[in-house]
Design a protein around this nucleic acid. Structure first.
Lengths: 133, 133
DNA sequence: CCGTATCCCGACTGATACTG
DNA sequence: CAGTATCAGTCGGGATACGG
């Protein structure tokens, strides 16, 4: 088994960009991934141990946390440091690349937060429309 | 059946933010959605007809395009204008909100594009590591 | 041309149990 | 404590066919 965490299935070539589109999309997929964003946010504060993250995110399964961290590690966004002690200890920390990614992500989050009312309003009225009428 | 296009399953409460976290996450999910981003990008150029989008994105199924557009419409990011002619014609256009979202999304895309080499490099070396050794 | 309904498969994910 | 393996359920998403 080699999870790779996310499919990144590849997109059919687009008429304009083509190659790069796919690659960019794979990064967007990372961001869109529910857990990845949370982990990144958690790690902004500094290194965290496995179970700390698990506890703080509270709702993620051990499996998913592992897969998420693997994916982030694979993309060079976090580092995994093992202390061969007993009991074992593993720290996860954001790389410079990861911290760089955190910026636009936070910008997006900021936008999302600021426009939540509009979006939720739109959703509500849309649902009202399609519910009856 | 009422697809709603995306689950937005709700996140368990986080220790710090709580409520807002969930909502912001739902917006992030929109962005992370493969097709949504493409549609938004397409619509930056101006209004487009259904089959135009379908043709340009080339690889999206009719079903997914419909669902994606529904989701964007629901969030107030695009408008759907029906011309009751024969044959029918439907134009999709970005709202101001949608154009606003396009900004941070493009910023993210820009970042992704600029750091593609690093990320792909990280992926390659990671895969090499876990492949053998 | 635009959209919906149905079928169906594969991928994601949670629960659980087991190793170092 | 950190991580892997297995199983089973759910659901996203493509293909197709039909309705307006």
């Amino acid at each position: 088994m080699r999870p790779e965490h996310k499919n990144v299935p590849a997109l059919p070539p687009s008429p304009h960009g083509g190659e790069n589109c796919r690659a960019v999309a794979s990064v967007l997929a990372r961001v869109g991934d529910k857990w990845s964003v949370f982990v990144i946010m958690m790690l902004i504060n500094g290194p965290q141990r496995f179970n700390e993250l698990k506890r703080k995110i509270n709702g993620i399964s051990q499996r998913m946390l592992t897969l998420t961290l693997r994916g982030l590690e694979r993309d060079g966004l976090v580092t995994r440091t093992v202390f061969p002690t007993i009991p074992p200890r593993v720290d996860y920390e954001l790389t410079d690349l990861g911290r760089g990614l955190a910026q636009p992500v936070q910008a997006l989050g900021k936008w999302a937060f600021e426009h939540l009312p509009e979006i939720e309003g739109a959703r509500t009225s849309f649902d009202a429309r399609s519910g009856k009428d």
